[in-house]
Amino acid sequence: MARRGRLVIKPDRCTGCRTCELACAFVHSTGGLLGLSRIRIREAGAGPEGDRHLQMTCLQCIEAACVKVCPVDALVRNEDTGAIEVSERCIGCGLCAVVCPFGHMHFDRMLGRPIKCDLCGGAPTCAAFCPHGALEVR
């Protein structure tokens, strides 16, 4: 099946308003708990044009460490969207979050589940809410 659009990150446009974090948190948790957001804004120092920010979210690696390390094959690539999704097979051992080389996976002890970007099934909410065009679906 043809892939739907991919999430394009444009850090030079990001103002650090964190609307994406909030949108993600509201879509993926009841009550919009920011700790459950799958996208996180990191400050990247000051540049000539002002403070720089980077949007950090899962890169959906082709050869993903999280997929390799999972003992129950709970991380499954959605062939339609290209996203690696956490399936119901997860038993909450937390290894995936430990090995992700980018720190894009977060293990939530309360839920007993890793938190990671699933591209919202092909239509990322963060991109829809970004007011500056710093996240785009192409």
């Binding site: 950090m56 720190g103 977060h106």
Partner: peptide, 20 residues
């Protein structure tokens, strides 16, 4: 060897050096 937060901060620095 590293926690999620420190990995993300290291990665963000590396990405920043590529972007800017």
């Amino acid at each position: 060897d590293f926690c999620e937060s420190c990995k993300q901060s290291t990665a963000s620095k590396r990405f920043a050096s590529i972007v800017w």
